[in-house]
C-alpha cells in the first residue's frame, strides 16, 4: 500500500465491448429471423408446411457439427480442410456396417463412425504437430488422400436406404414437440462443446495457444498436445456429421461432403471466429452455420439463380471478415488512445 500511483487507472468500455461481442450472435439471430420471414412471406410453404418446417430445422445440423470442429481448429491458429472427406468415409463406413453386419446395434455404428473420424483427425494432428508443416498444407493433402481412399473403396456404388435399419431411418424424421430430434441432439453437442470451450481450462488453453503461441510456449502449454486435441475433435465431429448425413438422406456415395470444408470455414468466420486464432465463440459458430445453411435453402425458394447463390454467400463471408477487421481496428485504436492519455 506504500505505493502512490501517478499513472491514472485504465478505464474500459467493458459494457461497450461486451455489447460488440454479443452483437455478432444477436446480429446473426436477427439475420436468420429476417431471412426466414422474408422467404416465408414470398413462399409460405418454406415455413408453413410439415416438410418445409422440418427441412428448415434439420438441414443445418450437418454444417453446425462440422463448423464446430473447424472452429476449434481455427481457434488454435490452424485449419482443417479434410473434414468433407472424413465425413464421406464415416457416412459410407456406417452404411456399409449396417448392410454387412447383421443386427449391428445403431449405437455401435455411431461409435465406430465417430471413432473413425477421430482417428483420421488424429493422423492430421500428428502430421501437423510433429512435422511442423502448416496445417493448410497437411490437411489439403489429406483432403485428397481421404477422398482417394473413399473413391478406391466405394467406386461407383452408393448406399441404398434398404441397407439401413428402419429405426435409424426414423431418426431422420423423428420429432419431439415439433422439433426434429436430430436438431435437439446437435444442440446438445453444441452445448457440450460450448461449455468446454468457454468454461473449462482445457478449452481455454486452446484459445491461449491461438492467441499468442510464443507466450503459450513460455507458459508451458504443450503445443503438440493441444494441436492433437483440436484435430481429433474436428475429425470426431466430422464423423458424427457423416452419421447425421446418413440418417437424413439415407444414401451416399464417394462424393458425399465434397466442398463441406469450405462451408465449415465460412460458417466459423461468419460466426465470429478470427482466422488468426484466439477468439470467437461456439455459440456464434452454431448461429453462423445455421444462417449459411438457411441461406442456401432460402435462395432457391426466393428464385435467386443458382449462380448468384454462391456469390451471395461469398458476400456474407467477406462482410463478416470486414466487420471483424473494423471492430478490431477501432478496439485497438481506442485502447491506444487510452494508453496515450495516461
Amino acid at each position: 500500500m506504500s505505493v502512490t500511483h501517478t499513472v491514472p487507472p485504465i478505464e474500459t468500455g467493458r459494457s461497450g465491448l461486451q455489447k460488440l461481442l454479443r452483437a455478432r450472435e444477436s446480429g446473426l439471430v436477427v439475420l436468420i429471423v429476417a431471412l426466414i420471414a422474408v422467404t416465408a412471406a414470398i413462399q409460405p410453404t418454406f415455413l408453413f408446411s410439415d416438410g418445409g418446417w422440418r427441412e428448415l430445422l434439420r438441414q443445418p445440423t450437418i454444417l453446425i457439427l462440422i463448423a464446430l470442429g473447424e472452429a476449434i481448429v481455427i481457434i488454435t491458429r490452424n485449419i482443417d480442410l479434410s473434414i468433407g472427406s472424413i465425413l464421406c468415409l464415416s457416412t459410407y463406413t456406417s452404411g456399409w456396417l449396417f448392410a454387412n453386419v447383421e443386427g449391428i446395434p445403431i449405437v455401435l455404428v455411431v461409435l465406430i463412425g465417430v471413432a473413425l473420424g477421430a482417428f483420421l483427425g488424429l493422423i492430421n494432428g500428428l502430421l501437423v504437430a510433429f512435422l511442423r508443416v502448416p496445417s493448410l498444407v497437411i490437411t489439403l493433402g489429406t483432403l485428397y488422400a481421404y477422398r482417394g481412399i473413399a473413391i478406391l473403396w466405394i467406386g461407383p456404388h452408393f448406399i441404398r436406404s434398404s441397407w439401413l435399419p428402419p429405426e435409424f431411418r426414423a431418426l431422420g424424421t423423428m420429432q419431439w414437440v415439433g422439433i426434429p430430434v436430430l436438431l435437439l441432439l446437435v444442440l446438445i453437442v453444441v452445448l457440450i462443446v460450448g461449455w468446454f470451450m468457454t468454461s473449462r481450462r482445457a478449452g481455454r488453453d486452446l484459445y491461449a495457444l491461438g492467441s499468442n503461441p510464443e507466450a503459450a510456449k513460455l507458459f508451458g502449454l504443450s503445443e503438440r498436445r493441444l494441436t492433437l486435441n483440436a484435430f481429433v475433435t474436428s475429425g470426431a465431429l466430422a464423423g458424427l456429421g457423416g452419421l447425421v448425413y446418413l440418417s437424413i438422406y439415407a444414401t451416399g456415395d464417394a462424393r458425399v461432403g465434397t466442398g463441406y470444408e469450405l462451408e465449415a470455414v465460412a460458417a466459423a468466420v461468419v460466426g465470429g471466429v478470427a482466422i488468426v486464432g484466439g477468439s470467437g465463440t461456439i455459440w456464434g459458430v452454431a448461429l453462423g452455420a445455421f444462417f449459411l445453411a438457411t441461406i442456401s435453402s432460402a435462395l432457391p425458394v426466393l428464385g435467386v439463380p443458382s449462380l448468384w447463390q454462391q456469390a451471395i454467400v461469398g458476400i456474407f463471408i467477406v462482410g463478416a471478415i470486414l466487420l471483424d477487421r473494423v471492430l478490431f481496428l477501432s478496439r485497438t485504436r481506442r485502447a491506444k488512445r487510452k494508453g496515450s492519455e495516461s
Partner: peptide, 30 residues
Amino acid sequence: IYQEPTLFPDFTVAENIFVGRQPYTKLGLL
C-alpha cells in the same frame, strides 16, 4: 517478467492472471 511481456491478447486481464488455473464454480463454469 520479460522485457516484452507475454500475455494472451484475446483474454481479459483477469483471465491472464489466472490462465491455466482458472477457478470453477460449483456448476463447472469458470
